[in-house]
């Protein structure tokens, strides 16, 4: 259980990291906290020629507070969000979900950017960040581009990274005062990858109503206008207006064929809605 021998680089800034990525004669792998990559390296599932450690790059740990959104670097850890060292703008959604990721010892090193780029469909960040409408910014030889977080995952373990690109930051919108959110993941034991994830955001002030079905073994199913599933957000009890039939249909339409899988995911969404938090 030892990785193959690799070269190691610790670039000082994003520009230097991109320069290292540009060498396409080598198998170059970026590492942040290494909590997904570490096990894969130890098991020799991944055998890079060069490991680029970006955890020391200051820009990737910066937080910028803007009037209607917050931007944080790719190397912000789960624990940074759980402990609110990064200010929460989501009425508790992100800290609460962070608290349930793996184990504390993993959360102290694992990063949001690393989790998104590893693109495991059962991971937490891809689902909750899709629910709150977050975006990711990627930087490469052609400059920056910003896309919706759900579009960043192409499929199981495949992120939308063009040659020489890396993820640099995540942008999370500030939720309205009456926004409600919910998140539920179905796991047989704590800390394991989820079998089904349901998440929603209802933010009537901003006119946002989103539903996410995650842990689908591929990219999450994101309903960007979910009024037909959870109403306009003004109902006192969202679980009373939740249409589980329509949710099952939306999941089937997205290609989930197995009826038991569908049912598990509908239940995860219903539980997310039953636990609606308004903070």
């Amino acid at each position: 259980m030892k990785p193959v021998n690799f070269d190691y680089a610790r670039p000082a800034d994003v520009g230097a990291a991109l320069a290292l990525l540009a060498d396409d004669t080598l198998a170059v792998k970026i590492m942040a906290g290494g909590q997904s990559l570490g096990p894969m390296l130890n098991m020799r599932l991944v055998q890079p020629d060069l490991l680029v450690d970006i955890a020391g790059i200051e820009e990737l740990k910066q937080v910028t507070d803007r009037p209607d959104e917050i931007v944080f670097g790719a190397c912000i850890t789960h624990a940074d969000i759980e402990d609110r060292r990064v200010p929460d703008v989501t009425r508790g959604a992100l800290p609460s979900v962070a608290n349930g990721i793996a184990y504390r010892a993993v959360r102290n090193r694992g990063t949001v950017g690393g989790s998104l780029t590893h693109a495991d469909p059962s991971a937490d960040w891809i689902s909750i960040l899709s629910a709150v409408g977050a975006r990711v910014t990627l930087r490469g030889p052609a400059g920056n581009r910003t896309i919706a977080v759900e579009d960043y995952m192409l499929g199981a373990l495949e992120a939308d990274l063009r040659p020489g690109e890396m993820l640099v930051s995540v942008t999370v919108p500030k939720l309205g005062r009456s926004a409600r959110w919910g998140y539920y993941k179905s796991c047989r034991k704590t800390g394991e990858f989820a079998h089904a994830i349901g998440a929603f955001l209802s933010d009537p002030e901003r006119g946002v109503s989103r539903v996410v079905i995650g842990a689908t073994e591929s990219r999450p199913i994101v309903v960007t206008d979910a009024q037909h599933l959870i109403g306009d957000g003004r109902a006192e009890r969202l679980d009373r207006v939740f249409d589980s039939h329509a949710a099952a249909e939306a999941i089937a339409a997205a290609g989930m064929a197995d009826p038991i899988d569908r049912q598990t995911h509908v239940v995860a969404l219903r539980r997310a809605i039953e636990r609606a938090y308004s903070a």
């Binding site: 021998n5 680089a9 000082a12 800034d13 906290g33 020391g56 740990k61 850890t77 060292r85 990064v86």
Partner: peptide, 22 residues
């Protein structure tokens, strides 16, 4: 902020990558 254990090493003088060949 960032992964525990990171950020203590100084970058090399020219600001480029510290690269270790093993």
């Amino acid at each position: 902020l960032g992964p525990a254990g990171s950020g203590h090493a100084t970058a090399s003088a020219n600001g480029t990558a510290t690269r270790i060949r093993t």
